[in-house]
Nucleic acid binder design. Structure first.
Length: 307
DNA sequence: AATGGGTCGAAGCTTAGATT
DNA sequence: AATCTAAGCTTCGACCCATT
């Protein structure tokens, strides 16, 4: 039963300290604890580490993540000479425990589908990565190299060293999470209908302005149109028509902003012949008419925030 | 002249349930 | 689980007119 932590990919990381530690007798005698997360990577094993009641033996390349305030020490006084890197850090928002059995897999970790596959849907604000508590990374030498750099940064402590340290830590955590993802993916087999879905999305993305009729789709994908609707809805969470409409409006938004084309010609370009119909659709999705939208964008060079 | 808005029916789309 | 069928729902765009 492995323990994992879910942490936001956009979490703010703050490295408190990093160092290389050589295991001596005192390591087994003293309890250590601190208010931060602490990531340990063993350079030379074995290291006998006890975290609260949990006793582990870590070998070269193994990593271990301690929770804030978690008491830890060595548990085998006879074993000396091991070495490990450690880095203490705070993360905002804080990583939380993650249970593969109970918690829903975050986007990107499950079979790689979902709304973020769709162009018009913004990427998830809180993309999560799963960091294992105890792990042996396939790129452990790379990881140890990063640790080495991190410790050097802390030792020299020049310029933007805290910023650079945070970046290094971020890379390390991402590395662990990616490796874990690789392991999980191998165990996951993709549903057959998912392949159909991907081809469908690709087709829609590339051909939405032209006349995408049900016959075209049926011919290109060799499936009944009604079935494609079902598959698309299942994976994307929205209907084909809705998606194409979003694509058209998004393209139109860009054209309104970047060109001086008339609403009529923009309507034609995104595949809606009737400008009246286009205008209505645009207002429905954006909340403003095309002309209003263009004026607003021109007057306020800020990013639009409508959904 | 260009654009925004309302109504309505045919065409197109979606979904529940059947079928393989 | 993947696919199809049939029924019912939704939308597009033609036709109006109003506003700038």
């Amino acid at each position: 039963m492995a323990i994992h932590y879910a942490m936001s990919r956009s979490a703010f990381l703050d490295v408190k300290w990093a160092a290389l530690h050589t295991v001596r007798e005192s390591f087994s005698l003293e309890q250590h604890y601190n208010p931060y997360f602490e990531l340990i990577a063993v350079t030379e094993g074995p290291v006998h580490l006890q975290a609260e009641e949990e006793k582990v033996v870590l070998h070269a390349g193994d990593t271990f993540l301690l929770r804030p305030w978690e008491r830890h020490k060595g548990w085998n006084p006879a074993a000396q000479g091991g070495e490990f890197y450690w880095v203490q850090f705070a993360a905002t928002p804080e990583p939380r425990p993650f249970d593969f059995a109970k918690d829903r897999l975050p986007v990107g970790l499950e079979a790689p589908h979902g709304p973020s596959d769709l162009r018009t849907v913004p990427a998830y604000r809180d993309e999560t990565m799963i960091v294992p508590r105890r792990f042996r990374s396939s790129g452990r030498f790379h990881l140890l190299g990063l640790f080495e750099q991190l410790v050097r940064e802390m030792d020299e402590a020049k310029g933007y060293y805290r910023y650079r340290s945070s970046l290094l830590l971020g890379t390390m955590l991402e590395r662990l999470a990616s490796d874990l993802l690789g392991h999980v993916r191998q165990e996951t087999t993709l549903p057959a209908s998912y392949v159909t879905y991907r081809s469908l999305v690709s087709l829609l993305d590339n051909q939405y302005p032209s006349s995408l009729t049900r016959e075209t789709l049926e011919a290109q994908l060799d499936r009944k149109y009604e079935y494609l609707c079902g598959v698309f809805k299942k994976y994307a969470g929205m209907t084909i028509g809705a998606y194409v409409r979003h694509l058209r409006v998004q393209r139109a938004q860009y054209l309104l902003q970047a060109t001086e084309d008339s609403v009529q010609s923009i309507a034609a370009e995104v595949g809606i012949a009737d400008p009246f119909t286009f205008s209505k659709l645009f207002k429905k999705l954006v909340g403003r008419s095309p002309a209003d939208y263009r004026n607003e964008i021109r007057n306020k060079p800020r990013c639009p925030d409508e959904g």
